[in-house]
Every structure is written in C-alpha cells, then in structure tokens.
C-alpha cells in the first residue's frame, strides 16, 4: 500500500520545483506515478487527467486530489494536495512581503513597467493557442466572442457567463440526443 508520506513527498517535489503552472506538472506526475513508482497504469492515469480537466478548479490540485484518493482515499488526497501547494504558498508570501518593502525603489518600478505589457501578452497568448485546440472556426467563434464582449464591454460577471454556457450546452446536448 502506498504510504501517505510518499504521496506527500512526490507531490511536494513536483509542486516545489515546477514553474509554469499545472500543465507543466503533468509530465512530471506521469513519470513519477506511472513510470517510476507504478502506482497507476497509464490508462488509469489518463482517466484521472480527463476528470481533472473536466471538473472546475485548479488543475494541479484536482490531479493531486484524484490520484491521492485513488491510492489512499480521502487522507491520501489531502496529503497530495498539501504537498503540492505548500511551498508555492510559502514562496508567494515571502515574495509578497519582500516586494512591498522594495516597491518604491526606482529599479523595481522600472522592472515592473517593462514587465506589465509582457504579462498582458502572456494572458492573451493562450487565447490563440486554445482557440486551435478547442476547434474554433467561423461557425462557432460567435460564442467566445460574445462571452468576451459581455464581460469586457457590458461588465457581465464571468461566473454568470460560465453558468449560462454550461446550462445551455447541457440542454442542447439533451435535445440532440433525443432526436437521434
């Protein structure tokens, strides 16, 4: 049986040393959980990936939850989650405190003046790459465009947009299914 401390350790290592968010952690999780330790078969692992992507929340934390749960139940998932997010939270807090002290120094100010447009570009970039993976074309592009305009120009809450989209998709799926 997999030990709690091993679950904690694996996710701790991945959470502490992976820069670039949850999807950057995925190959590392696969290597540890499937290849090195043999805790799950590749197929089982991919099922957990699909579930984590489909459900709301932070992808990496969802992965830790379902893999931990699969191996050692509820406390297994707690061990994996805590391992995964412990050091990132500590790092961010140290940085947040430190940045508050140095905020007014000219060099730091100039650094962030250069960085801000870059960050906006990094947020805009996945729009284009995700448009490809979500198979957006002329027929369905009205949906993301409408979502963006509703939020940006009319100030509609993204929460409302997501809720309506989910409900509409579900109903349309039900109707299409009945016609078959």
């Amino acid at each position: 049986m997999v030990k709690y401390c091993d679950l904690f350790y694996i996710f701790f290592k991945i959470g502490t040393f992976t820069i670039g968010g949850g999807y950057a952690m995925l190959p590392l999780m696969e290597r540890e959980v499937v290849d090195r330790r043999g805790w799950l078969s590749r197929e089982e692992f991919l099922d957990q990936v699909a579930l984590s992507q489909a459900m709301p929340g932070v992808f990496a934390v969802n992965m830790a939850a379902v893999v931990g749960n699969r191996l050692r139940g509820l406390w297994g998932s707690v061990a994996a989650i805590v391992g995964n997010i412990l050091m990132p939270i500590v790092f961010i807090l140290l940085l947040a405190v430190a940045l508050r002290q140095v905020r007014t120094i000219a060099v730091v100010d100039h650094f962030f003046m250069g960085v801000r447009p870059a960050v906006v570009a990094l947020i805009a970039a996945p729009v284009f790459s995700m448009a490809r993976t979500a198979h957006i074309g002329w027929r369905n592009c009205w949906l993301p465009v409408a979502a963006a305009l509703l939020i940006w120009l009319l100030g509609v809450s993204p929460v409302a947009v997501i809720a309506v989209a989910a409900a509409a998709g579900f109903v349309v799926g039900k109707i299409q299914n009945r016609k078959k």
Binding site: I123, A131, L143, G169
Partner: peptide, 21 residues
C-alpha cells in the same frame, strides 16, 4: 452522457472568450 459531453464542449469554447476578456 451526451448532454455532459455537449456541456463541456460549450464550456471549452466559452473559456477562450473569458481569457480574452
């Protein structure tokens, strides 16, 4: 179920708009 699959297809499209906003 087909309805759940359709729901996630719509959500994937919507999320792209969310990030654009």
């Amino acid at each position: 179920s087909a309805a759940v699959v359709a729901m996630f297809r719509v959500l994937r499209l919507t999320v792209v708009g969310l990030i654009a906003a």
